[in-house]
C-alpha cells in the first residue's frame, strides 16, 4: 500500500502509511487502542475508502478492483460480527455460497475448516448458543472457507482465554506457512511468538517495522549499564568517556555515600572489561554492575507513549 490515509472529519485516524507484505509472511500489526489498526485493515478489505493513497494487492488497486481483491482475502473483523440466529452450518454455507463454493466443493471446504478450527460438535448449533471461543473459531472458519491467499485478522485472539489463544496462535502459524497473514493486536505478547514481522503503528503512523530481531537491534542497539561504585571522584568520572570511547556517560547520582553511574554502550562492543580496568586504575571500588537490555515490550512502550513517536 502507498501513502494510505484516512480522516474521519477532522480526525486523521491514519496518516500516510506505507508498507509492503509478501506471500508467506505472517505480519503482526501492533498498536495501542485507537492507533489506527482497524481503520487500516478496513481500507485494505474495502470496508472503508481511503481519504488518500491506496492499497495494492498483486498490482490490483482496491479503488478499482475491490471485487477481485475481496475474492482473495479472508477477513475477520474486530468484533467478529456473526449472524447469531443462524446455525454454524447455515452461516458457513451462506458465506461459501457468496464465494461460489457449492455442493461437493462446499462439503470439502466445510470439512477442512471444521477440522482446522476445531468446530466438530458445534456445526449444527445455533451461533448465539456458542461460547466466545467458539464464536471466534466460527468467524475464523468463515474467513478461511474459500482457502484465501490472504488472511486479515483484526485482533483475532483478544478476549480469549490463554488456552484458546495458544490454539488460535497455532492455527494461524500453520496457515501462515502458505498464506499471507496480517493480524493486529494491541498486546505484544499475543502476537510476538506468532508473527515473522511486526509493524508498529502509533497515532496513525508507522513507527517501526521489522522482524523481532531487527526491531531488537534497531532499537536496542544500546545497553544501559547501571554501576554502583565507591570512591569515585568527579574528575575520574568525567574522564571515563575519553578513556573508553565506546562508553557514553549519561549521569550519576549519589546513594548512601556511593555513586550510581548510568552508562550506555552499543551491544556490538561490550566495554565492561575495560570499564573494570579503568575503575581499578582510578581506585574505584565496584559494588555492582547491571547491564539492562530493553526487551521488545520496552520498545513497544517507548514507541507508543503519546507524543513519543520519535523517541
Amino acid at each position: 500500500m502507498t501513502d494510505l490515509s484516512k480522516n474521519f472529519g477532522s480526525l486523521e485516524a491514519v496518516k500516510s502509511i506505507d508498507f509492503e507484505i509478501n506471500d508467506g509472511e505472517i505480519v503482526g500489526f501492533l498498536g495501542v487502542n485507537g492507533a489506527g489498526k482497524t481503520t487500516t485493515l478496513r481500507m485494505i478489505t474495502g470496508f472503508l475508502v481511503p481519504t488518500g493513497g491506496t492499497v495494492y494487492v498483486d498490482d490490483l488497486n482496491i479503488l478499482d478492483h475491490a471485487y477481485e481483491i475481496q475474492k482473495q482475502i479472508g477477513y475477520l473483523a474486530e468484533l467478529n460480527p456473526l449472524y447469531s440466529e443462524m446455525s454454524v452450518y447455515d452461516f458457513l454455507e451462506f458465506i461459501a455460497d457468496i464465494r461460489k463454493i457449492r455442493g461437493k466443493q462446499f462439503k470439502e471446504a466445510l470439512a477442512r475448516v471444521v477440522e482446522q478450527c476445531g468446530l466438530k460438535g458445534v456445526v449444527h448449533r445455533t451461533i448465539s448458543n456458542c461460547s466466545k471461543g467458539f464464536r471466534q473459531r466460527i468467524g475464523l472458519a468463515s474467513t478461511m472457507i474459500h482457502d484465501p491467499d490472504i488472511l486479515i485478522l483484526d485482533e483475532p485472539v483478544t478476549g480469549l482465554d490463554p488456552n484458546q489463544i495458544v490454539e488460535i496462535r497455532g492455527l494461524i502459524k500453520e496457515l501462515g506457512k502458505e498464506k499471507l497473514v496480517l493480524m493486529s493486536s494491541h498486546i505484544l505478547q499475543e502476537i510476538q511468538v506468532t508473527v515473522d514481522r511486526i509493524i508498529i503503528i502509533h497515532e496513525g503512523e508507522i513507527v517501526a517495522d521489522g522482524t523481532n530481531e531487527e526491531l531488537m537491534s534497531n532499537f536496542m542497539g544500546n545497553v544501559h549499564l547501571t554501576m554502583e561504585v565507591k570512591d569515585a571522584t568527579i574528575d575520574s568520572v568525567s574522564n571515563i568517556e575519553s578513556a573508553i570511547p565506546s562508553v557514553k556517560f549519561l549521569n550519576s547520582e549519589p546513594k548512601n555515600g556511593h555513586q550510581i553511574l548510568h552508562l550506555e554502550y552499543s551491544r556490538e562492543d561490550d566495554p565492561r572489561e575495560e570499564l573494570f580496568k579503568f575503575a581499578v586504575d582510578s581506585k574505584w571500588i565496584i559494588l555492582s554492575m547491571n547491564p539492562h537490555t530493553a526487551n521488545l515490550e520496552d520498545i513497544f512502550r517507548s514507541l507508543t507513549v503519546t507524543g513519543g513517536a520519535n523517541a
Partner: peptide, 14 residues
C-alpha cells in the same frame, strides 16, 4: 447494528 454489514461489504458481492 450488529456489524454484520462489515461481513457483507467485504465479501465479493455488489
Amino acid at each position: 447494528n450488529t456489524g454484520t454489514i462489515e461481513i457483507i461489504t467485504t465479501l465479493p458481492i455488489t
